[in-house]
Design a protein around this nucleic acid. Structure first.
Length: 955
RNA sequence: GGGCGAUUAGCUCAGAGGUAGAGCACUACCUUGACACGGUAGGAGUCACUGGUUCGAUUCCAGUAUCGCCCACCA
């Protein structure tokens, strides 16, 4: 066999360079065509299920989605390799308010309002938008290589899920957990809808504090008391709705005034002075104006004192008729006008700059207005109580654990959830008003029925109000509530609605029966309240009865684990978001580096405690050093596999079989031991959400151990010289086969273990290596069996010592400035027989890896007997390394190197002897620590001494 | 006002009760038959500060500072 034979490239060898785009597209298509990720509920295997957090159909995905996807897909692919019956269910969310905001902005650009357009036409546009955006998103998820079951893809507004929503609404209503009523809600004038407390964001603004004088009503002034009170407010326009002024009951200043009346300026309304504990006498004047219809605190005060509620603002944010002469003004104009009027009439005492928090609407980006409004609410406390109890039992389990406290605290002191939205895009509330009883229009007091559909609503209404209508001789007319539900209402049902809940008959749907509860929810901490808690509350309402999970399950909770990950931050450590315009399109990075590189980069950044990750990014060139490093890793894997293929002579791991244990060389046993250790650690890490650690461990093994050392160590064995004959040749061929067997096996198992992180590349390389048919997928293989017998800690230490010895030689050569190609003799001196033995056995390896002219191993006595000789000398532990190179040596560099050795050893001696000199150390530290310390000290002393001697030899 | 996190090499971050690691960047050499998206060797850190526990703290505890986040009705 000549050189040409070795160079000949096998037919199925990999191309010289890796093309991620082509490879990824090919495998994505192959997996999908084969239905590789379509599980069968009837199939065997312990179930494992994940429903993905459905992205909003608001455009396209950002890096946070890519991150979430990478994490979920890693977990899910690992579980598949573990032989579980894995369902990963994808879908999208209709995002009622967000999508409607986008569409209304579009309409604004066209100069029409949604009301001009009409509900039906508006919804048509919304569905068109959904089609486009949903398609983009699904395309992006595919490009990431998401191993989900696309057949089961769901959309929160599709028929099945809509059925789940109305069923949920009806049942909650029946249970008394949904009610309708007039309360103070957060009103967003921009979207013209109520929003929930969670959709309100407090922002600090530089505002003003206006001090207003309210005169006592004529005849109310007490003798030698004040004739007015001064109140302070940040929202002067609300004074038009004032119905009282409150003081603290313990406030002596105003004790005599409680119960007397004030004359409200501008409107000349008489309002009482009331005493209420809520008032802090130390703040401002200790007097608070009370506007129950426009402030949550005042609402509560009003309730306590039986005060009227006067709404002075309309829902579009303009003042209404109750505002008298200010009617029709926009709310901020009204503020200016009221202040002006108060000043003109002498009621403005002073204005102070005042920094305070103002509630802003999350979506509309304008201040929300607390407004009295009739809305639908979910009574949350009973639902939250169930969840708190479950959490006491450890359900669900939060990873990292600290988030469970955040979850619990929110469920404690929870407020009712306003679920109705005055929007069009969403699930219409399944309530029908009997408008024939209220002049054909829906009023706050119009009777209504709640039912799954209009036919049932009509039947119900007939039975309740039919007689009444018949008596009056008029027809019963129903009108469905025009409002839609908060998006999170349907999201809250996601873990079971997507699996087929509610059952249509007696029988539970197969998916629900098989895969509920889901195994883990993977999401960011920013939606623990919005989503995680809503899902647990909803599950508590529908998946348990009397504390017992339905369907004979062991838990009614929607997921066993909640894995909370951080957010992706940009290069300036800002949260990536669309609104701040600092998002990075994952597709740009995928196109440049490949989906596997992006996935690997994101997962590798994950630290143990769920911290945020930062993705470095150069916006000018659309490059990322982090992702580039992951791409380089992919290339490294590509190349090492190419190397293997070039050397396996057409054989595969299967055709080669397992090596004979007796024929294994040191390097083989070492890498197999490392492989077994990696197998154990990686499975443990994948299985316990240590994904970043898993990625790092695989990276280090592949690059630092396989590529840097194992491959280098076996290169000679893979090449059998043509001139070898007879027994020698047979031996060499046998040894070559062993090396091939080990290399093939290590790579094969490595690729399986890497698969969850880099699915496409590993699939491609695995096929190249194994020669398996294209329709057999790595994605569906079994996790490699742990070869516990291969674990050998002592051997690993030996090889670490060998590696260290080689490093010392290389370092000496570098210090002396030897050309890499220049051979040099190597002399090792050690008094440790095991080390001598190791070095002698590895002579060939050392020769190859250090360009040694010759390798000699001596014990110190033998070395002593040799004539003193100038040499490059280095000391590592108790091993001396000499490169006798008379004449070629850069003496200065050599002295430097030795001096450095001495310095290092001395520093260690100082530290160690200091510790040992401390009597309490020897007395109290564990004996093995003391012994180790002594050993290290002895070694360091020997090292220093040897180095000094070598230095002396140099003259 | 409460709570949570962070503070380690120039940058981004790991880490563990026994004298600190990785990737990127940096320096020198190397186009060696897998790989220059590479190899070899190297430089680089009073582990934020102050106390305490301990034989020993960068690691555990308490406090301080700075940064970030979440929750909260002070007009």
């Amino acid at each position: 066999m000549g050189r040409s034979a070795a160079v000949a490239v096998p037919e199925d060898a990999l191309p010289k360079t890796y093309d991620p785009a082509g490879t990824e597209a090919r495998w994505q298509a192959a997996w999908e065509a084969a239905g590789a990720f379509h599980p069968d509920p009837a199939a065997p295997g312990e179930p494992f299920s994940v429903v993905i957090p459905p992205p909003n159909v608001t455009g396209s995905l950002h890096m946070g989605h890519a991150f979430n996807t990478a994490l979920i897909d890693t977990v899910v692919r690992f579980q598949r390799l573990q032989g579980r019956n894995v369902l990963c269910l994808p879908g999208t969310d209709h995002a009622s308010i967000a999508v409607q905001t986008i569409l209304e902005k579009q309409l604004q650009g066209e100069g029409i309002s949604r009301h001009e357009l009409g509900r039906e036409a508006f919804l048509e546009r919304a569905w068109a938008w959904k089609g486009e955006s949903g398609g983009t998103i699904v395309g992006q998820l595919r490009r990431l290589g998401y191993s989900v079951d696309w057949r089961r893809e769901r959309f929160t507004l599709d028929p099945g899920l809509s059925r789940a929503v109305s069923e949920a609404f009806v049942r909650l209503h029946q249970q008394g957990l949904i009610y309708r009523g007039e309360y103070l809600v957060n009103w967003c004038p921009a979207s013209g809808s109520a929003v929930s407390d969670l959709e309100v964001e407090m922002k600090e603004v530089e505002g003003s504090l206006w001090h207003l004088r309210y005169p006592l009503a004529p005849g109310e002034t007490p003798p030698d008391g004040p004739d007015h009170l001064v109140v302070a407010t940040t929202r002067p326009e609300t004074m038009l709705g004032d119905v009282a002024v409150a003081v603290n009951p313990a406030d002596a200043r105003y004790a005599g005034l409680v119960g007397r009346r004030l004359r409200l300026p501008l409107l000349d309304r008489l309002i009482p002075i009331v005493a209420d504990d809520h008032v802090d006498p130390a703040f401002g004047t200790g007097c608070v104006k009370v506007t129950p219809a426009h402030d949550p605190n005042d609402f509560a005060i009003g309730q306590r004192h039986g005060l009227p509620q006067i709404t002075v603002m309309a829902k579009d944010g303009t003042m209404n008729a109750a505002a008298g002469r200010f009617a029709g003004l926009e709310r901020f104009e009204a503020r200016r006008a009221v202040v002006e009027a108060m000043e003109a009439e002498g009621y403005l005492v002073k204005v102070e700059p005042h920094r305070h928090s103002v509630p802003f609407s999350d979506r509309g980006k304008v201040p929300v207005e607390p407004l009295l409004s009739t809305q639908w609410f979910v009574r949350t406390e009973p639902l939250a109580a169930r969840c708190r109890e479950a959490l006491e039992r450890g359900e669900p389990r939060f990873v990292p654990e600290r988030w469970s406290k955040v979850y619990r605290d929110w469920l404690t002191d929870i407020r009712d959830w306003c679920i109705s939205r005055q929007l069009w895009w969403g699930h219409r509330i399944p309530a029908w008003f009997v408008v024939s009883l209220s002049d054909g229009v829906i009023r706050d007091d119009t009777p209504f029925v709640v039912a799954g559909d209009e036919a049932r609503a009509r039947a119900e209404a007939e039975s309740r109000y039919g007689q009444e209508h018949a008596a009056a001789g008029k027809a019963l007319v129903l009108e469905q509530d025009p409002d839609v539900l908060d998006t999170w209402f349907s999201s809250g049902l996601w873990p079971f609605s997507t699996l087929g809940w509610p059952a249509e008959g007696e029988q539970e749907p197969a998916d629900l029966a098989r895969w509920y509860p889901t195994s883990v929810l993977v999401t960011g901490f920013d939606i623990i309240f919005f989503w995680v808690a809503r899902m647990t509350m909803m599950a508590g309402a529908f998946l348990q009865e009397g504390g017992t999970p339905v369907g004979g399950r062991d838990s009614w909770l929607p997921f066993r684990d909640v894995y909370i990950h951080g957010l992706v931050r940009d290069e300036h450590n800002r949260k990536m978001s669309k609104s701040s315009g600092n998002g990075i399109d994952p597709l740009l990075l995928i196109e440049r580096y490949g989906a596997d590189a992006l996935r690997f980069a994101l997962v590798r950044e994950v630290a143990g405690a769920g911290q945020d990750i930062r993705l470095d990014y150069d916006r000018r060139s659309d490059t990322s050093a982090t992702v580039e490093a992951a791409r380089n890793f992919a290339t490294k894997l590509w190349n090492v596999t190419r190397f293997a293929l070039l050397n396996l002579d057409g054989e595969t791991p299967a055709s080669l079989g397992h090596p004979e244990p007796a024929s294994l060389q040191l390097a083989d046993r070492w890498i197999l031991s490392r492989l077994a250790r990696l197998n154990r650690e990686t499975a443990e890490r994948y299985g316990s959400y240590g994904l970043g650690e898993a990625a790092k461990g695989l990276y280090e093994f592949a690059w630092n151990e396989v590529c840097d050392w194992y491959v280098e160590l076996i290169k000679r064995r893979l090449q059998v010289p043509a001139e070898l004959e007879g027994e020698k040749r047979r031996e060499a061929l046998a040894d070559q086969r062993t090396a091939r067997q080990v290399l093939a096996r290590v790579l094969q198992e490595l690729l399986v273990m890497l698969h969850p992180l880099m699915p496409h590349l590993s699939e491609e390389l695995w096929h190249g290596l194994t020669g398996e048919a294209p329709e057999t997928f790595l994605a569906l293989q079994a996790w490699p069996e742990l070869d516990a017998a291969a674990l050998d800690g002592e051997l690993e230490e030996s090889v670490a010592a060998l590696i260290e010895a080689i490093r010392v030689v290389r370092n000496l050569r570098a210090v002396a400035g030897l050309k890499p190609s220049q051979p040099a003799p190597v002399l090792f001196i050690s008094g440790r027989p095991s080390l001598q033995e190791l070095l002698r056995r590895a002579t060939a390896d050392i020769t190859a890896l250090t360009r040694a002219e010759s390798v000699q191993v001596l014990d110190p006595q033998a070395a002593e007997a040799r004539p003193a000789q100038r040499a490059l000398a280095g000391v590592s532990g108790e091993l001396q390394v000499l490169l006798p190179l008379e004449g070629l040596v850069d003496l200065e560099a050599l002295r430097g190197r030795l001096q450095k050795d001495i310095g290092k050893a001395e520093k260690e001696i100082q530290g160690l002897s200091g510790r040992l000199a401390n009597p309490s150390f020897a007395g109290k530290a564990p004996p093995e620590v003391v012994a180790e310390c002594r050993a290290k000290l002895a070694e360091a002393e020997a090292q220093a001494e040897l180095a000094r001697k070598r230095l002396q030899d140099l003259g």
